[in-house]
Computed example of a mutant assay.
Amino acid sequence: MKIAAFSISRAARGLAAAALLLVATTPAHAVSIDTVAREAILIDMSTDTVLFEKNADQRMPTASMSKVATMYMVFDAVEQGRLSLDDTLPVSERAWRMQGSKMFVELGNQIKVEDLIRGVIIQSGNDACVVLAEGLAGTEEAFAANMTKRMHELGMNGTNLMNASGWPHPDHYSTPRDLATLAVRLIDDFPEHFHYYSETEFTYHGIRQMNRNPLLYRNMGVDGLKTGHTEEAGYGLIATGERDGRRLVLVVSGLPSMQARADESARLLEWGFRQFDAYSLFTAGETVDRLPVWLGDKNDVPLVLEKPLKLTLSKEQRRSLKVSVVGEAPLAAPVAQGSQVATLKVTAPELDLEIPLLAGEPVERLGLFGRINAAANYLVFGAP
């Protein structure tokens, strides 16, 4: 017999529960918005929910936004002990001659790694990128090959990187979705190094430069990540900010000016924070419902989720949210703890999730006399 024995009132009770994340990438497009950006994606990192996307899988030049990938490699090397923040690296002629945005490293000098990190993140130094790349892999080409391989391991299969700085190259590209994935992984994997992205200025070689991320100066909770601009790419930005326990990640590209980049990025992030909220429905192991068991040493079994369930929903989706349990009842004993015995179905406009429900405890099969007694009760009183 199919059952649907769960009401929204119980879901509402669970909204007050503190939960983390059930990984289930879900669109939440019930509220519409558009953008003048050529490509864009906005996600709620706490629930891995896409709030908005436009040409999110379109291959595009990254410009300096791919410097986030370079920093991922550097932070990874620091965490593995292959590099220290206090180490110094030599400046080659190739690094010294780099054009575009610069940290202004001196030829032949030894530069502290932490200074190079700030030179890349705050000053967007192409020269600092080359110093780090050569220090880690010997050549920038070898570093780029290693970096592309690592990005693919992170799931960024639409990405190919030919250099450490994002310098224009026909085979150097990524996608907005890949860059959002990279941002999430950098924040998650290296929280102890993320603070560099919120620093607004850095002085090196007597030259004071300001962080190019315009949203750091708008008092809107933004604390990263990286701008980019070339003639082909237009103006782009990977931005992230946190409010009330929700962290959003935005990638925009192809904007016509610095002002458009600043204003459009701020508008999209504000929309994401204002129009959506994150709701905790159930904690891991919390009893969602119970199913009757036939011929078991217990009359029923609790249904639980393996992971917490937290969803990002628009106000319209929240009002229309429906939650139900679907499965066969009664279950036949024995029932193994942790086995899937039902499904939690969650629906709302543009949302349709089916999540396994597990047996929260074991139920053993009754012995011979117990089964005889249960059968006798069935004949007299009907189904359990």
Score class of each variant (00 low, 15 high):
274 R>F: 02
243 R>N: 05
90 P>M: 11
194 F>D: 13
195 H>A: 14
28 A>W: 01
287 T>D: 08
373 N>I: 02
311 L>N: 02
94 R>K: 06
375 A>G: 09
303 L>V: 11
47 T>L: 00
224 G>A: 08
80 Q>C: 02
356 P>N: 07
303 L>A: 07
281 L>G: 09
175 T>M: 05
137 A>M: 12
99 Q>G: 14
220 M>G: 06
180 A>K: 06
330 P>C: 02
5 A>P: 04
333 A>D: 10
6 F>L: 15
296 G>F: 04
2 K>I: 00
234 G>F: 03
46 S>R: 13
141 E>D: 14
149 K>A: 13
215 L>Q: 05
135 G>K: 11
117 I>W: 01
149 K>L: 10
287 T>S: 14
135 G>Q: 13
24 A>W: 03
46 S>Y: 05
327 G>R: 10
77 A>T: 07
18 A>E: 15
89 L>G: 12
175 T>N: 12
76 D>M: 05
27 P>Y: 03
115 D>C: 02
296 G>A: 07
175 T>L: 05
104 F>W: 14
169 H>Q: 11
321 L>W: 10
312 T>D: 02
50 V>T: 15
52 F>P: 03
170 P>K: 14
52 F>W: 03
142 A>C: 06
164 A>C: 08
67 K>P: 00
200 T>G: 12
5 A>N: 15
348 A>S: 11
152 H>G: 03
2 K>P: 12
303 L>I: 10
23 V>P: 15
11 A>W: 10
88 T>F: 01
88 T>G: 03
296 G>R: 06
